[in-house]
Write a protein that binds this DNA or RNA. Sequence first.
DNA 1: GCAAAGCAAGAGCACTGCTCTCGAATGCGT
DNA 2: ACGCATTCGAGAGCAGTGCTCTTGCTTTGC
Lengths: 227, 227
Amino acid sequence: MPAIRTARERAREELTREIKQEARRQLASAGAQQLSLRAVARELGMASSALYRYFASRDELLTALIIDAYTELGEAAEHAVTAEPGASARERWRAGWQATRDWARANPHEFALIYGTPVPGYAAPETTVEAAARLPLALLGVVRAAPLRPTPAGPTLPGALPEQLANLAAFAAPELPAPTLARAVSAWIQLIGLIGFELHGHLVGSLDPATDFFAWTAEETADSLGL
Amino acid sequence: MPAIRTARERAREELTREIKQEARRQLASAGAQQLSLRAVARELGMASSALYRYFASRDELLTALIIDAYTELGEAAEHAVTAEPGASARERWRAGWQATRDWARANPHEFALIYGTPVPGYAAPETTVEAAARLPLALLGVVRAAPLRPTPAGPTLPGALPEQLANLAAFAAPELPAPTLARAVSAWIQLIGLIGFELHGHLVGSLDPATDFFAWTAEETADSLGL
DNA sequence: GCAAAGCAAGAGCACTGCTCTCGAATGCGT
DNA sequence: ACGCATTCGAGAGCAGTGCTCTTGCTTTGC
């Protein structure tokens, strides 16, 4: 793709960006439910129908926002786990967890968009999975790079789980023992689940604010992995 | 409340039930997003405006469905953990987990409604919390009734967490040690988080179908609690 | 038996996502 | 430098939404 482009192409790109930007603003202030194409167009001073030259549908706009959110969260985590070169694996694990929670609390609607109920009937095109994988891969990177202490043997892996884990390990972490990989996936779910619970009010009246419980959970999962 | 009621009251009650029933049908087939008051009214052969005599708003109808879903899930779990009188604590734990997943897979939209993104701006009136508590209390009941094996001391409880856990224990499980209670909450989050991941497609391409991973997680959490 | 309360229905408002059409601006090949 | 095809913005319009208000009718309680 050449750096030199026609005025039309540049205008198109810029407008596409502006639309996403305005949509994101509305998303952040009112949530995905309330995101309205007409309101976006209104705010941008254009006809609502003109918007369809840039996004074929509301869902397509949302999908673009989903990818952006995954990417942003993934980058935040990646940056956190690599920020301190001399940091121990446990410190990097902690940093990754904290960065994830911080991002989620700063962008609750974006978090809900990617880890909450899928908004349309269910549209996760291939394009999203790469962006979606960045957070778990960043966390997994910490585990892979760490000298793992031995951990108590857990329950035996039932049924097809060893095979599933082997397939997963094949492209994500070939050197990791299957139980460790399983615990890493568990930790990822625990991370997202806990943040979701906190954000969606399921801990109100018990462990809310969840700051300390979150920190404890980070340590507990690190322990379970042998970090 | 007397068993004898005016025809009007009986009609009102019956219609309220029918509205919820039809709403639930639409919820189950298309999700909360698509639930339309007008469509419900249409299906029931009445004017949409008449519906507002029974539910003040769409959100109120949804809240009613939320309470029903919490209750149903809670009852399913309660039944599961008490079904086999002679069962061991671990077996009852397993049964509670399985029942939760089974219900969620049979009622994915209902599950998303209660444990996904809050649909309105955020309306969790007091009425919902009692119903919402049934599932975690049912699972906690298994832990309380069990003779717990000693478990490795986990990370120290940071900051205000001991106090939060003490408050929680005060009305939910006074006899449980704080770390065990914390692990129980973690297990609850793990349960819901894992089901959410499975249902919302976050495990596609890795550990989906999640049946075996789910079973393994149930064992792992039971281990961590000393069940 | 009658006033009061509860009720259903219709019209209507302000929205929504989305489509189609039509003139204007733009880019490319000649 | 011109002409044509593509791209674009805007407007009108469709079908649908949640919700309100008014208008009559039915049931209830005194």
